[in-house]
Design a protein around this nucleic acid. Sequence first.
DNA 1: GGATTAATGTACGAACTAGTACGTTCACGT
DNA 2: ACGTGAACGTACTAGTTCGTACATTAATCC
Lengths: 213, 213
Amino acid sequence: MAAPSSEAERQRDKERTRADILAVATREFADKGYTGARVDEIAARTSTTKRMIYYYFGGKEQLYIAVLEQAYSAIRALEQQLDVEHLDPEDALRQLAALTFDHHEANPDFIRLVSIENIENAQHLAQSEILSGLADPALGALKVVLERGRAAGRFRDADPLDVHMVISSYCVFRLANRHTFQAIFGRDMLDPARREHYRAMLGDLVIDYLTAR
Amino acid sequence: MAAPSSEAERQRDKERTRADILAVATREFADKGYTGARVDEIAARTSTTKRMIYYYFGGKEQLYIAVLEQAYSAIRALEQQLDVEHLDPEDALRQLAALTFDHHEANPDFIRLVSIENIENAQHLAQSEILSGLADPALGALKVVLERGRAAGRFRDADPLDVHMVISSYCVFRLANRHTFQAIFGRDMLDPARREHYRAMLGDLVIDYLTAR
DNA sequence: GGATTAATGTACGAACTAGTACGTTCACGT
DNA sequence: ACGTGAACGTACTAGTTCGTACATTAATCC
């Protein structure tokens, strides 16, 4: 009998250790920000030690970049859900907006990481070759839909990136600014009772803008 | 001759020292975030010493709260500019949106502080009696305008706070997320060449939503 | 099965950071 | 002119935080 070979019972597992660290680090960075996050704290929550963080990632900054890369790669999953080809432009656009809305709501850690990275002037994102060129997959589908609507004489001429910005700003704001908004206005933008209202409102907002006479 | 009396040449000046510290602290906190900001760094950039920060403010956290309070109080200045009463609802709303747009662009430090405070879950904002109840002054005017437009049969029925959220999200996103947006899509949302386009687009967005058939 | 390398754990250090003890100087009333 | 308290400066400390030197154990290859 040579090796235990069954991957599941290996005591030492490069992939598992790495993934463990990355998951814990994501929570810590999303919670506390880059400067607020503590390497010792991440290590403590891990099933391994701080030594391993430096062994696999090199340091706090590289770990943070790895966290960003993993978080951004998750948004590619959105691409598969876009089934927009056989819908008429208005329905397709509403679906696209709703999907973005849902996706943001389902990934609050990601939104926080983006906010954090903006506080840092996106300096870490710029260091990552993987991320610096990455475009949002939703943008491609959006471009197609806008062109179809425009060709059909239903939509005004609009830059896809501008429309994407409107959708993003609405969805991001609802998550990223919920705490100050709540404190100032007393309204919880994430209250489940208002979720459908906000979701529908985004669709109206975009469609009304594009179809205004 | 009793006192030098001329306030300008006093070497010791409570107000000046306080204001100096506050101004420097605002830059430091807006730049680095709450945890990233360094008390020693603030002190170094001041014309006084770290001792005075603790003398006047008590500590890092109270200094940060004082910075927040001052920054928020500046937005009250917006209130005076709202000359909205004698315009027709559509023009008034466009003006209100444009004013918010301008105001956000003119106060990037404030936007950064809001982002930072959201990363901190608005825990410091909640501690301030001055701030926790403060509503945006633009909201009152917005409410009036929406009611006038609704009464005239020109606007749909819409919650003022929802409309405010749309305007804010657009204006805040343009500043708060400019770095990641630039890094991912290669577009600088603050490019002066695109400023008028974005400013007008916000007006269209809001008006088209409210006046959609 | 023994050598070699990959993976992991422990203990520590150097630098940083918020906050303070203590001493000093200036303004102002009388 | 002088006492008093407010305003200010220096030097320090206790605790934290990133990173690493060094030792150790498990897997893998022949």
